[in-house]
Design a protein around this nucleic acid. Structure first.
Lengths: 146, 146
DNA sequence: TTTCCCGTTTACGTGAACGTCAATGGTTTG
DNA sequence: CAAACCATTGACGTTCACGTAAACGGGAAA
């Protein structure tokens, strides 16, 4: 019998609020059991939350995430339903691959931005304390704050 | 003299509405000139719209996009402002890199979904027209429902 | 028992990103 | 010159993903 979780535990583990978990339940994305009135989340619920949050981070709506989760659970829809599902999956994959490219480009541009700031700061420093040029392209040096 | 665009032209080119372009202007992301009361968009405005839309696709809010755009244009903020800006950039880069990973994983999972559907359809076909086949083992992403 | 601390439901509130009128005005086309 | 368009400024409406308070219950600790 694998371990279960309270709403607080799960919320803290994922860095979300209880309200958010209840909201996902309202939207039909998870359906934890109850011990009396209180929710008990199973390992399966936990796994679904992982997928939900990742889906959100890549820009899916909760409704879209719901569709996808459903498709992993339902058994037989018939060929027509499957074709429909398949094309939806393929579309989403294409969208994600476009997004992948967008992200690469955005990262490149933000790094350019960091470089420009670094150069500006270096210049300011040199006005006061001139020094032979060692231009640092410096990213990835700082730990992700907070 | 480089070419200019009407609001309709730009909207159609980017697949957005005029309302959206006005909204971006309300939010201070672009500031096209006016010929009388009408907006004329320059090549620079057009470039900014490109960045705005890409920013949106990767999940930035309009406010965040505004900050980023500003940093490409403003001249001197002083060292303190620059440090602040730099750390925001670095944070954004970190977030995007995490997102990058999320997308890879999501793509992998959606592809798994497609495979499962394909197998199901193959099975159905085999009922009618049997054929030896390598079966992809059916472990799901989620623990099975009890 | 009373006091906390979780937890629950119900329901209205909020911020972001536009959508959708309504009222108005310039322009070009038949 | 009137009809068709396209544009502009309010300003209220809408969807999504929760936030936030109100009112209530159960259990454990003081």
């Amino acid at each position: 019998m694998s371990r279960t979780y309270t709403i607080r535990e799960l919320a803290r583990e994922f860095g979300i609020t209880s309200r958010t978990l209840r909201h996902y339940e309202d939207e039909g994305l998870i359906s934890p059991e109850r011990r009396g009135t209180q929710r008990i989340y199973s390992a399966r619920d936990r796994a679904r939350v992982t997928l939900i949050l990742r889906g959100r981070r890549v820009g899916f709506t909760l409704a879209e995430i719901g569709e996808i989760l459903d498709l992993y659970n339902e058994e037989d829809h018939g060929a027509a339903q499957d074709m429909h599902a398949r094309s939806k999956f393929v579309q989403r994959i294409a969208a994600l691959e476009r997004q992948y490219k967008d992200i690469e480009e955005s990262i490149a541009e933000l790094k350019l931005g960091v470089t420009r700031i670094d150069n500006r700061m270096t210049e300011r420093h040199e006005e006061i304390n001139p020094r032979p040029q060692v231009r640092v392209s410096g990213f990835g040096v700082l730990p992700a704050a907070e």
